[in-house]
């Protein structure tokens, strides 16, 4: 689980880096680490996806964006009141999360509810019901195929949305200059 510790450290760096470029590159690294972790946790499909998406697409998108906008972050204003509230919110959420974990089944416990209910059927029956060995695929595409339909609808929505917002031929004048002078 050193990997997790490493992840936390990377995440801290990502958040702290003032240079957005550095931040984004580290973010790519972070995604790769996450993908690695997923491999360790037997989630090969997820690892594959995370590597492709997190380290690949997201990074490209981020780079594209910071190339267009300022590459540096302004230092967070040291106003105590603005800093206090986020800390409180985060602290409360954290406490709730930890509180929530206390009654969780232990990590890797084969008798955890999720391993004894519903899921076994996938592992046991999918060979006869669907006939393909990759259970992730059979769940993804058949048992819960509808989620996947939703998923590509999400992509579809996002792609159309980006087209609408910043696609070519948009007629919004560049208002930056006006406001700078005004």
């Amino acid at each position: 689980m050193t990997l997790l510790g490493f992840l936390v450290a990377t995440a801290l760096f990502v958040v702290q880096a003032r240079n957005l470029f550095v931040s984004v590159i580290l973010m790519g690294l972070f995604s790769l680490l996450v993908a690695g972790l997923f491999m360790v946790l037997d989630a090969v499909d997820v690892a594959f996806t995370e590597a492709a998406v997190g380290a690949g697409i997201s990074t490209v998108l981020f780079l594209g964006t910071i190339a267009l906008v300022a590459p540096k972050e302004r230092p967070v204003a040291p106003r105590s009141r603005r800093q206090l509230l986020p800390f409180l919110v985060v602290g409360a959420t954290f406490a709730l999360l930890i509180f929530g974990t206390l009654d969780m089944p232990l990590y890797g416990d084969p008798n955890a509810p999720i391993h004894v209910y519903v899921a076994p059927r996938y592992l046991e029956q999918s060979a006869t019901e669907i006939g393909i060995p990759n259970v992730v695929t059979s769940v993804l595409a058949s048992y819960r195929g509808y989620d996947t339909l939703g998923e590509i609808t999400v992509i579809f929505t996002a792609a159309l949305g980006v087209m609408m917002l910043i696609g070519r031929g948009r007629k919004f004048p560049r208002r930056r200059r006006e406001t700078d002078e005004a």
């Binding site: 509810p113 999720i114 519903v118």
Partner: peptide, 29 residues
Amino acid sequence: MMYMMTGTLNMADLGTRLPEVAATRTVIA
């Protein structure tokens, strides 16, 4: 968290299985 405690994602199914683990801190969270 709910899934963790019950192993199911179906609402009706959750409705029947959650009471058994209702008192756990995980479910409260």
